[in-house]
């Protein structure tokens, strides 16, 4: 270890802490330590190529995730079921264009006269697919127009970015995680594709992308919100049924939405503590 340049110092520190962890696991490392130091030189070269986020903000140079805490509001009383959010989401996030995999979707609840349970469908229902004419396009069929409807409403759904996400809990490799600013992300380069997280989500928010062999779900368009934009679905919603913002900012749309409404979350009994807040849903929605 003759020449010690600055970047290699950091690498060596990280290596040494790794080594310390290893040593804690076994006492038999005394001999291997010497071997390891030799390898450390090689490892340091690798770190120098890393994009330098150090010293600046993280995750990007223009965005500091410690300064935000994102939240999402859904005003179901405004939703018109046009499904432009679903369309925008599929395009923005390269979600497979079929009727079985969605990052966001819209549910329709219809109580017909004389029925006490809602009839529920979503854009993937065969009747709705028949109305749109393709699994790649989405529209709600006007299937109840000739019936007497007591009550009907639409409910947009998406990942709840739970405070205690069941999906993150069960991931065996740490390929899904909660960011500091409150979004649950999936590392598509690290996911092994076991689909345990898909099983664990009580909201059905995750799907498995067969083509890429990894799980996928809504990220609240993390690549947009970190650039100061709105998620694609919020941007596309023509009636303001989707509200997004930073709850650290008391005047943000979502802060006002939560403050000015009696909001509720889906399946609070799971203890997941969702961060999508709903207004205007009723007992059948979960």
């Amino acid at each position: 270890m003759k020449k010690v340049s600055n970047p290699s110092l950091a690498a060596r520190r990280s290596f040494l802490s790794k080594l310390a962890r290893a040593a804690a696991c076994t006492g038999a490392l005394a001999g291997a330590g010497a071997l390891g130091v030799g390898v450390a030189k090689g490892a340091s070269a690798k770190t120098e190529a890393k994009p330098a986020a150090e010293g600046g903000s993280f995750p990007t140079k223009d965005y500091d995730w410690t300064k935000h805490q994102w939240a999402f509001g859904v005003d179901a009383t405004k939703c018109i079921g046009c499904l432009r959010c679903v369309e925008a989401c599929k395009v923005e996030n390269d979600v497979p264009r079929n009727a079985h995999q969605f990052r966001t979707w819209v549910e329709r609840y219809v109580y017909l006269e004389g029925e006490d349970r809602a009839r529920i469908d979503s854009q993937q229902d065969p009747v709705n697919i028949a109305a749109s004419g393709s699994e790649k396009e989405y529209r709600f069929a006007n299937r109840y127009k000739d019936q007497k409807v007591d009550k009907a409403f639409f409910v947009p759904k998406l990942c709840n970015q739970c405070t205690h996400p069941a999906c993150v809990q069960v991931c065996p490799v740490g390929a899904t995680y909660k960011t500091e600013d409150g979004v649950v992300l999936i590392d598509h380069d690290y996911c092994i594709g076991c689909r345990y997280c898909v099983q664990a989500c009580p909201y059905g928010a995750r799907y498995f992308n067969e083509e890429h062999g990894v799980s996928d779900k809504c990220t609240w368009c993390y690549h947009r919100i970190t650039k100061g934009m709105q998620p694609a679905c919020v941007e596309a919603c023509p009636v303001g049924a989707r509200i997004f913002g930073d709850i650290k900012d008391k005047q943000s749309p979502v802060s006002l939405f939560i403050r000015n409404n009696r909001v509720q979350v889906l399946r609070p009994e799971t203890g997941n503590a969702p961060n999508v807040f709903y207004v205007g849903i009723d007992k059948e929605v979960n």
Binding site: K50, P51, A53, F58, P59, T60, Y63, W65, G174, A175, T176, Y177, K178, T179, L185, D187, D189, Y190, T219, Y222, H223, T226, K227
Partner: peptide, 13 residues
């Protein structure tokens, strides 16, 4: 935490 921090940057970018 137990995840690849670089991935956050990758997704944000």
């Amino acid at each position: 935490g137990p995840y690849r921090a670089d991935n956050v940057t990758e997704i944000a970018s």
